[in-house]
Design a protein around this nucleic acid. Structure first.
Lengths: 196, 196
DNA sequence: TATTATAGAGAACGAAAGGTCACTTTGTCA
DNA sequence: TGACAAAGTGACCTTTCGTTCTCTATAATA
């Protein structure tokens, strides 16, 4: 009676849903990927939809835990170069961590169908990033590392292009290195444009 | 013997696929939305996949026709304000034209599954926009409306945030007006940052 | 050790999927 | 007008889907 089966099912579901979408995923394969037979899944979840909802619960909770509170905001860079370094660390992590990649893909695939996925997608892809870098840029302005300007606008102008490159990596992983180089070039260009 | 049924099928397929994805779409409903019965579809297409491939052919051809050749590049703005106006016209059109919205959604939903969708998605969401505005900004630099800079980098920095807002409109149509205002604000902010 | 709740297997179910086929209707053209 | 090909229909086939049921193995508990 292996414990933690519920968690394994959710992990496998994330994998399948991110590759084939909710509609394209079938319970047999999902169970098979765990060495189980489909009926066994129903000992842990009432239905396919229940698996989906539990997965979304998990993703929402994870996001809130990871990015929800101000104490998880990144430190304010002490130099322009530090902003570039921090950015590269973050992007490198986010495009290489399989779990995060799969989460983005699921949100991308289900954003038009599921209201909670839609909401989380907007946070993941847009507002969450803007919020985070709004704080970073406010700090950098206070330190005189950036021209005084609307920090939210700057954060949006900074994160949206990087987000686009992250999506490119999700879509075409073979372009990851090229995209990373572009992230760095963009980061430096941004500093040249908005630096003091 | 109604003519143009093939085109109508493709139009209905675009609608269904963009709402529910390829896997989530079923032939019966697709046919019913045209007042037909599913077997009738098979007079025009060999299979569901054939419909999908024909739809992609159409999308690829349409894109090539519309954005493929240099003669379709937008005119170079004669003033900063004209850039804002042109941008607003383009964005307004692209978020309100149902066909284009559905095309973006389909590409979003199928980008991880279908190689051609993936390729077209990158063009639609990234490289195509960069190419187009690379030309625009080169022209504006020549006219002394923008600081001399790498036009491709500028085009990327300009179009990626706007693209993010277009995706937001696709995902949450009720935020369209708000997003449009943000596009305009961003466009002006961009000019303030990069103008002479 | 006897009991019991849990996790799994396997067969089977009804519904829905994509697809086929024989037949009918309809517009076109010789 | 009659022949014919194209377009549309309805019944049916096979497969696959999500789900349920009965039964068994197992680990924990009293």
């Amino acid at each position: 009676m292996a414990k933690g089966t519920k968690e394994k099912i959710l992990a496998a579901a994330l994998e399948q849903f991110s590759q084939k979408g909710y509609a394209g995923t079938n319970i047999r394969e999902l169970a098979a990927s765990l060495g189980l037979v489909k009926s066994s899944l129903y000992k842990h979840f009432d239905s396919k939809e229940a698996i989906w909802n539990a997965l979304l619960d998990e993703m929402i909770a994870y996001y809130a835990e990871r990015f929800g509170s101000p104490e998880h905001l990144p430190p304010v860079p002490k130099s322009p170069e530090e902003l570039v370094e921090m950015t590269m660390r973050m992007v490198n992590f986010t495009v290489r961590d399989e779990r995060i990649v799969m989460t983005r893909k699921v949100l991308t695939l289900e954003q038009y169908r599921d209201a909670r996925a839609r909401e989380l997608a907007t946070k993941h892809f847009l507002t969450g990033l803007t919020d985070m870098f709004s704080h970073v840029f406010t700090g950098m302005m206070d330190r005189g590392l950036l021209r005084r300007d609307d920090p939210r606008m700057l954060a949006f102008a900074y994160t949206a292009p990087i987000s686009a490159l992250i999506h490119l990596c999700d879509r075409e992983p073979e372009k990851t290195e090229e995209a990373m180089a572009q992230v760095e070039a963009f980061s430096r260009h941004f500093l040249a444009a908005y630096g003091v």
